[in-house]
Design a protein around this nucleic acid. Sequence first.
DNA 1: GATGAATGAGTTTTCATTCAT
DNA 2: AATGAATGAAAACTCATTCAT
Lengths: 201, 201, 201, 201
Amino acid sequence: MQNRETKRNEKYEKILEAAIKIFSKHGYYKATISQIAREAGVADGTIYLYFKNKDDILKSFFTYRTREVFAKFKDEVKKGKNALDKLRRLIHAHLTAFEKSREMAIVYQVECKKRSHLSKDKIKEMSNMYMELVKEIIQLGQKEGTIRKDLSIPLVRQLMVGAIDEVITTWVYTSKKYSLSSMTDPLMDLIVKGIGNDKEK
Amino acid sequence: MQNRETKRNEKYEKILEAAIKIFSKHGYYKATISQIAREAGVADGTIYLYFKNKDDILKSFFTYRTREVFAKFKDEVKKGKNALDKLRRLIHAHLTAFEKSREMAIVYQVECKKRSHLSKDKIKEMSNMYMELVKEIIQLGQKEGTIRKDLSIPLVRQLMVGAIDEVITTWVYTSKKYSLSSMTDPLMDLIVKGIGNDKEK
Amino acid sequence: MQNRETKRNEKYEKILEAAIKIFSKHGYYKATISQIAREAGVADGTIYLYFKNKDDILKSFFTYRTREVFAKFKDEVKKGKNALDKLRRLIHAHLTAFEKSREMAIVYQVECKKRSHLSKDKIKEMSNMYMELVKEIIQLGQKEGTIRKDLSIPLVRQLMVGAIDEVITTWVYTSKKYSLSSMTDPLMDLIVKGIGNDKEK
Amino acid sequence: MQNRETKRNEKYEKILEAAIKIFSKHGYYKATISQIAREAGVADGTIYLYFKNKDDILKSFFTYRTREVFAKFKDEVKKGKNALDKLRRLIHAHLTAFEKSREMAIVYQVECKKRSHLSKDKIKEMSNMYMELVKEIIQLGQKEGTIRKDLSIPLVRQLMVGAIDEVITTWVYTSKKYSLSSMTDPLMDLIVKGIGNDKEK
DNA sequence: GATGAATGAGTTTTCATTCAT
DNA sequence: AATGAATGAAAACTCATTCAT
């Protein structure tokens, strides 16, 4: 038999999942508590037993997802044998994280990623966490000789995050005719080699 | 003396500008018609003489800006002497367009870019317009031998748009201590050469 | 023709009167904005054009009434020829003020008088204003020799206000079979002479 | 060992006391069942084993207190040797009853005394009980010759109750720098002799 | 008896939109 | 054309009360 705590968590997650579904369909502002409650199969008031208010649902999702996702990212980078392997694993993990749930991806990209509900500090913190991963990879690659020496780490982070996000966004707005993770290698190739032609160098 | 049309446009633009200012400060949903009216120096009801409803203001801004911005993009690409020059001009024009007004950049990035108020068609249309520019540049470069032959044009578009957007977003959330257009060359360099080290090839 | 300002005030007072009616019938907490709006013949939202919130309606009434009532009290006291005449006029004005509207009396006695919605400062201020009136009367009477020398002014205020309030409250809960102002002389007599028998002194 | 009834009463009183504390702090309407339950150290649902509903808590308190207090009042009046002694004992008992607990005094004055939760019948009943005490004292005093013959008993009740209540209310809103029962003699003096000067008679 | 999670009716408040002036 | 007071639908949130455990 389940103990009380387990049941508590179950309902918490049920509401969170319902909220993500509704947020992804209507956007944060047009989504109503009643819709979320109905989707979760609970009464409106029940939501307030688990979340302070509407905003708290979104923030909770964000915190929850970020923790989960970054743990995975760090783990994958650690597993990589060399800089390029680490890089590939990071890109792959990033794409895979969002591939699992289109709804989650939409909410994350639209409502969380782009400020509004997140404090500047939260955004900066996340940006810094990603930067650390990038830094580790680049510095290793520079030692190995596989990565250029003249790089701005913040800019590389911007290139990577920006490109990956756009790939995700495009996939989200497309009818998902291809797998998101299948974009790993093409994207990796582009980020590593650039679009220029070196043959003549 | 001004003719009627000119006067009409004056007020139309005054409201549009006020709206952008307010949207950028509070976000689309928290912004109220009254705030916009006050900022524009008109009565609440007057806004409805120029716009169908609140949503129409945002859509109008988007259409207006997109037209303006893409005209500039096309123009710059046309002026470029060769593929890389065209590319550099596109990136520079893109960054400069958003540098002029932080407020505009915020609204564009947060409210327009990321769906919500825009139809899928609008987004696809914009994506396609950008794709055309990228295609033109890449195909020229491939003829010239300055750009790799094995490229997916949609992916290159995603890399470019994603990276540029992230650079803009980072700049927006920073205290603007550097000029956005100064990022043109570093970004260009990264996009063209990638982060990999070729010396040993 | 009425000017805009006049019309504004008209609606303000219409809402205030409706509120008093509803508050007196159901009490502050059970009264709803919708009931007040219906009674005033306006839409719910209109109330918020004139009052910050529900609480503000009650506070406004209190401020409004207090100012009005105390102006009258002062005026009457000023008109009195001597201490006992002044006293009689004060008691009479006090009773008359509440006689005009049973509804007003209920709200005043129940919701305002007895804290809850009023700051301690407001209550103290009111208490002090009354005290000033009492002080003036007593000091004059002491000079005239019509009032005892050994009196605590605060206590006299408490005796008077308490007794008058209780007379009003009793009247309010009775079916108003007598006029409130007819209680002036009996009350005055009791306050001045006390219940004791002096004949034997 | 305690019997069932005793245990029942223990919890019943614990809840009643907790309720008074919470009511006095937040007022009846703003006080929540949860707050009362927490204060009493029981679960929310438990309260409904002892009281029909929220209103019933207040009514029970009132009934309970009234019974207790009037028993004391009657007892004291009975003990008095003569009219004035009885009167002094009544005033003293009245003040002392409220001195014991500031919280109780607040709830009694604000929530009970002034209708809202009490039926007109309850109020009248209470008023009549007090009237009986006053009547007894006055009629005795009139026989003794210590009290005026020309008195309206209801009005004397109003004078007394009103004055005492106001003394209590003032004390409650003050920081209790003096003892409430110390007001017995000054108040008694005022009620018996009035504020007028008899020396010249 | 005791618990406390769940309920959902009921309330305040906001604000896009309308329309008489 | 311009105004801005009035509208009322819609939404977030609260909390007394219930009932399965």
